[in-house]
Simulated scan of single mutants.
Amino acid sequence: MQYAPVVVSLPIADRPTSYRFYSEGLGLDAVGEPAEDGIPEPLQFALNDGLRVMLVPVGGFGWVIGRHEVARRGHSECVLSLSAATSAEAAQLVERARAAGAEVVVEPGQQPWGFAGAFADPDGHLWMVSAETA
């Protein structure tokens, strides 16, 4: 059985900050109709035809996870990875994220498996951008 789209939900502190970072900073397209604040609710971005990231305020995220605690900033349980066509494209996306307010945690460069860099979004969620080719 296949599920499409797959939605990865991440807790966030501030909808406008996250909306600006993902839409203007990373160039992703928001999915859905704008709410009263002009930001789609729920706040989702299409990464491709089969994958979306949904950004949920911490309070609402708690409704889904119950008593399980959200990892505090600086403690990550996963790394979300994006593939770029070339190392230049990967480095450019990391720099675009930095310019939008991301903390670059691994500068773009050659790794044993290929070219990669990583950044933390405004809420500390880790993203790696990699490319297999130069």
Results as ranks from 00 to 15, higher is better:
Gly74Asp: 09
Thr133Ser: 15
Gly117Pro: 14
Pro108Phe: 02
Val70Ile: 15
Glu69Asp: 09
Leu82Lys: 09
Thr86His: 08
Gly114Cys: 11
Ala131Tyr: 08
Ser81His: 11
Pro112Thr: 14
Ser87Val: 05
Val104Gln: 03
Thr133Lys: 15
Ala91Trp: 13
Gln92Phe: 08
Gln110His: 10
Thr86Glu: 09
Thr86Lys: 06
Val104Ala: 06
Leu93Gln: 13
Leu93Lys: 08
Ala91Cys: 05
Val94Pro: 05
Arg96Ala: 04
Glu95Ser: 10
Ala116Lys: 07
Ala102Arg: 10
Arg73Asp: 06
Phe115Lys: 12
Pro112Met: 09
Glu77Ile: 15
Ala134Phe: 03
Ala118Cys: 05
Ala120Trp: 02
Pro108Thr: 01
His125Ser: 10
Ile65Tyr: 06
Gly117Arg: 11
Thr133Tyr: 06
Gly117Asn: 03
His125Asp: 09
Ala100Val: 04
Pro122Arg: 01
Ser76Thr: 05
Thr133Pro: 07
Ala118Ser: 14
Ala91Val: 13
Arg96Cys: 01
Ser83Gln: 14
His125Arg: 02
Thr86Met: 06
Phe119Glu: 08
Val106Gln: 14
Asp123Thr: 00
Ser76Leu: 03
Val94Glu: 03
Val104Cys: 04
Glu103Trp: 03
Ala134Ser: 12
Thr133Ile: 06
Pro112Asp: 12
Ala100Cys: 09
Trp113Thr: 10
Pro122Gly: 04
Cys78Val: 13
His75Trp: 10
Glu89Asn: 08
Gly124Gln: 12
Ala99Arg: 15
Arg67Glu: 15
Gly101Ala: 06
Pro112Trp: 12
Val70Asn: 00
Gly114Asn: 13
Arg72Cys: 01
Gly114Val: 11
Phe119Asn: 06
Val105Cys: 05
Arg98Gln: 13
Gln111Ala: 04
Ser130Thr: 12
Asp123Val: 00
Ala91His: 07
Gly101Phe: 01
Pro122Ser: 03
Ser83Ala: 09
Val129Leu: 03
Val70Gly: 00
Arg72Asn: 08
Ser87Met: 02
Thr86Asp: 07
Ser83Val: 13
Ile65Trp: 02
Ala71Asp: 10
Ala120Val: 05
Trp127Tyr: 11
Gln92Tyr: 04
Gly124Val: 10
Gly109Asn: 14
Ser83Leu: 15
Trp127Cys: 00
Thr86Val: 07
